[in-house]
């Protein structure tokens, strides 16, 4: 290695360290803003989020979905520990189902309810053909629903 190459290498490594430290600081400070949605437990801990437009995500609780009319729905979102009741007026996405992932956008009211104006179905990382799910269910190995 020539001296020129060595000095370039040292300069490069130094600037790399400085840039990575800067980026780490930025990411650490942006943490709260990058989070796309909050879970029910996180939201219940942060009462300062009440009255704000935010997103809430989790699983739709089993047998919690009720519809008042064709377009007004009540359901609750759970993360296993806590639940938040949601009211939504509009059309639900096709993949919306009980015990499936969902992200809702709307206002977290002061009384602890959530008025949603947008519902997004959240998909999990599992990809399986229907037949495989059937056999898994029969043998009792299916961990899902």
């Amino acid at each position: 290695m020539t001296n020129l190459v060595k000095s370039r290498l040292i300069k490069f490594l130094l600037s790399l360290i400085i840039v990575s430290i800067a980026v780490l600081i930025i990411i650490f400070n942006l943490r709260d803003n990058i989070i796309y949605f909050y879970g029910p437990t996180e939201l219940l801990k942060n009462s300062d989020k009440q009255g704000q437009i935010i997103r809430l995500g989790g699983l739709v609780s089993v047998s919690s979905v009720q519809n008042e009319s064709d377009s007004i729905f009540y359901f609750s979102i759970t993360d296993g520990d806590n639940k938040i009741d949601v009211k939504y007026e509009g059309i639900l996405p096709n993949l919306f189902a009980e015990d499936k992932g969902v992200v809702v956008e709307g206002v977290y009211m002061n009384d602890g309810r959530f008025i949603a104006n947008k519902v997004l179905a959240k998909h999990d990382e599992n990809y399986m053909p229907p037949e495989v799910i059937e056999t898994l269910k029969k043998s009792g190995k299916w961990q899902g629903e």
Partner: peptide
């Protein structure tokens, strides 16, 4: 972070969650 995009289905550390 909590993202709407699902986590990776194929990773070195665990069996893939794809059939």
């Amino acid at each position: 972070w909590n993202t709407l995009h699902q986590p990776a289905s194929i990773s070195k550390l665990s069996a893939p969650s794809i059939d």
